[in-house]
Design a binder for these strands. Sequence first.
RNA 1: GGGCCCAUAGCUCAGGUGGUCAGAGCACCUCGUUUACACCGAGGGGGUCGGGGGUUCGAGCCCCUCUGGGCCCA
Length: 871
Amino acid sequence: MTEPAAIPDKPALEGLEAKWNARWEEQGTFHFNREAARAKGVYSVDTPPPTASGSLHIGHVFSYTHTDVIARYQRAAGHEVFYPMGWDDNGLPTERRVQNYFGVRCDPTLPYDPGFEPPLHGAEGRSVRAADQRPISRRNFIELCERLTVEDEQQFEHLWRMVGLSVDWSQTYRTISDESIAASQRAFLRNLARGEAYQADAPTLWDVTFRTAVAQAELEDRERDGAYHALAFHRTGDHEDEDVVIETTRPELLPACVALVAHPDDERYQPLFGTTVRTPLFDVEVPVLPHRLAQPDKGSGIAMICTFGDVTDVVWWRELHLPNRTIIGQDGRILDLDPTWITDPHGREVFGELVGKTVFSAQKAVVEALRASGELLGDPKPIHHPVKFFEKGDRPLEIVSTRQWYIRNGANDPELRATLKRRGDELQWHPAFMHVRYDNWVDGLNSDWLVSRQRYFGVPIPVWYPVLADGTVDHDHPIAPAEADLPVDPSSQAPKGFAEAQRGEPGGFVGEVDVLDTWATSSLTPQLAGGWERDPELWDLVAPYDLRPQAQDIIRTWLFSTVLRSELEDHRLPWAHTTISGFIVDPDRKKMSKSKGNVVTPLGLLEQYSADAVRYWASAYKLGTDAAFDPHNPKQIKVGRRLAIKILNAAKFVLGFGEPAADARSTLPIDVSLLAALSDVVTQATKAFDAYDHARALEVTESFFWTFCDDYIEIVKERAYSDDAAGRDSALVTLRTALDVLLRLFAPFIVYATEEVYSWTHTESVHRQPWPTVSEIAEAIAPDRREGADDGVFQAVSDALITFRRAKTEAKVKMRTPIVTATLHGPADRVRLAAQALDDLRSVTKAQHVELAEDGTEFTISDVAFAPLEG
RNA sequence: GGGCCCAUAGCUCAGGUGGUCAGAGCACCUCGUUUACACCGAGGGGGUCGGGGGUUCGAGCCCCUCUGGGCCCA
């Protein structure tokens, strides 16, 4: 672009997205420049990488627009903005999508098939039943994951470009790329070396469907129907004929019962503490113990402890030093094991019948057997109670005992917990009240972070284990690779000093097959994007970052885990500010989610109303505020569209008046006054942006803009066309200055229309222009008029104008109907202000003569004589 | 059970440090083809700021409490 473009006859929003995206890409408008960064200072954004396998909905556009608006302001305010985009493509969501899309599932025991072609291609939306999924090797499966995410990411990028995110697309990263895997593994190895990562064989929350362990942060409670079953336990010793009745929602776990428990203060059960009872059906002797977590008001107040029905069972088991009698396997079925603790032949027979049954079937079988033995008292009492689920799962979690990897997070380390709390205090939250959610989460941590996942498409945990001479695996002495050798895949590569043939052999090794939790990599997005240990120059420029924008529901996961990793690695916050966007709710105030079927996809809205319109809608909401959205009547989007079109038209009109003389300045009182009002807008918008209140910045700008169009342009229109050189130049300078400033004030929000307009008079992008300043506006004012300039004259004329318009409306005459004479009344000071622009006021009202009267408390007019309208 | 947020015109939302703060847009009514814009313009009607207490000379704005909605954590 060497010359400004011609002003079109009929400016329109259509096509601007494609036109300007191509131009921005070609000119590198949003490229991060390291030299500029060193010179100007950096504003770096740790962008949330959307889940590549998900679909973007209107809520994403909402929050990402907030971030972009901030980035654009900071760029204008003089920073070199580091604003990369990432794709979170590793993990379960991708696996699940691949299964459904291609009709396959991963079976790691199968060999790789180089010529494999999936049975389906694009079974979008429907889930393919597990039985219909073709089993394929892990490598084939991962290849399909790669293939699909690359396709998805292209669509995402297209959408984001259309929305107009000022991202530097050359900085894009993926959480599953070799570089990301290496970074994630490197961070993990350092955690391991410092003793922050460790293994434990412990009861673990387990999703039966996905067959993987899940972490505390991935839990959610869901209300489910259940039933209290009253079971009779039998006392021992001197009280053999007495029963103790407990109520349980999980009678199928009876064979895993290891004790009964009641609250230490519960007088009903105090006599039983220290005694034993025999379980119904299985006749296993178990102790009756006191513990503070037993709830006297729940059921009969005494509960059975099983290994393991819920997380409380785990606490009891650990604190009361009870035996582990796990009976549920990783498939959610009763394990085929020898229950050595059950000695009663009938009990062993009953257990044998349970083997292989699902939890559901096992419960039916146990209940029937209890009925038959008379140890089930009465009918089960239906209840509604919260049950723990994996947030992505649809079957209740079980608890199984397995070896897993953990990263310390402060749950068992008061000092670390306090440090993390302090980091939360140091972080600047926008809005501030979101800080509480972080504190609540850190306070509520009850276990270290479980990071191993029994999945396939993820970052491999980079360790091997020695196989001892007797063939057992020595998990206590993991073999780690050198950082220089990363990334590694222990399931297909041998550790240094071993040959692949030694895999699984005595004296050899085995590779860890688990992968890291997605969040264990996502918690490193500052490192992944910022070239940590890969590009030290970049890392030094951008880290710690300025901004972490994100959704409120992942404060406990993404935000917290990123703070944790940064603390463990660098003992500092990863960023100075965090902005939390609200989410989108439907007109009934229900959160938008796939399962509710109320998700709105943005592409249609962008095409129908334009990206600027959608951006306006998003920008109009403050951070942290949930927004109701009705896709059938997107009012705010329509308003945004109207605004964007108005900008095009107003600019065309203003520029159409022609150019002022080169040395012209704003001289007439009303013109100076308009620029004073504009200065005030700049001050307010700047202050709002600096306080991360973009909605306020937009509001003051928009409000001024409409007044500018409806009043100021109308008021000076005739003068701008007139032969009076002085008056005309003052108007033209004022109009052009105001337009130029307004375009830059709007540019963070209305990115396309402002750029289009700017191109009519400039060869550079409006998005690379400095943020407007008060002193710059003063430059447009004649030097002797700058002192004490205020908006009084403009306000007075505007207010007076309304009374004239009202008079015409009430007289039911056209606005252009000439007035022969009229008297304007008002307070003396305001009348005198208006008098300073009396010629303009007369021209806009078509009044030949206006009498001024200093009386009354507000503007009114009287003695209006209309002239007949000609023609 | 604990915590946080929200409840202002029919709708969607603004209302720094308490004193023209009762606002904007949409919707509604009336009028209007004026040197950009009918994807427009002008004017107008409309709310005892969820209920109840309290602090204050004065409270959407501060405190208490109740009700309803949402979210987070147990």
